[in-house]
Design a protein around this nucleic acid. Sequence first.
DNA 1: ATGGCTTCATAGTGAAGA
Length: 260
Amino acid sequence: MMKIATWNVNSLKVRLTQVLDWLKDTQCDVLGIQELKCDNEHFPQNAFEELGYHVAFNGQKTYNGVAIISKYPITDICYDMPDYNDIQKRVITVTICDIRIICAYVVNGEAIDSDKFQYKLSWLDELYNHTQNMLNLHNRVILLGDFNIAPSDIDVYDSAMWQDKVLCSDMERSWWTKLLSLELYDSFRLFSNEPKQYTWWDYRNFAFKRKLGLRIDHILISPPLKDIACGCTIDTNPRKNERPSDHTPVILTLNHLNTK
DNA sequence: ATGGCTTCATAGTGAAGA
């Protein structure tokens, strides 16, 4: 059994104790983190290594930043997307146990009519190309992270209100469909068709307590991993912490994986 | 209800997140 998770922590500095406690509690093998909001000089490498984890990170001051934490050795680290000139640190790609893992923090996009949305669309095109390249080179591929896309109306607390809004627009959902047509699977939906299964809730208006959320954090897997996937769950417990992240972790479980 | 809350930043008429 191997547990692989994604979690947008919204500042690793603020959330470090919560992340370390969560790793101890869940015994997670691999964790992709987004929104570090810390530069590489301040990444808390020792704290993870003291728990027996390896780390790879791609951070910057103030915003963005991604990392991968692993009980197994990390090799072939690729920072950013090689063919895309982007000062924002949103992607890191590594190999762990012969699985190519892409950890991504997708651009939010602010609003459909904004410049940031145009940046989001071009950025998504580049992530599609990068993922396709990885699939051409590797059989076992995982693309995980904060996608800032709710794939369908059952992933949204008020789909009428969110219709044509950023995170739910036809443009973003078309990209999602195109991405999955590379033969990737939304691992959460392999095991559940239940609506109202969310990974993010607004800090405001008691959104978590009122169950007003979105499912925007995902773990996508290639066919050989689909064959050994035995569960994918959303762990809402960290959202109940004092000073929580607004996102909560998603955990994929794989069976029969040779970790040598 | 164009607000609500949180973080990082600076001391703003804040910016950004989702």
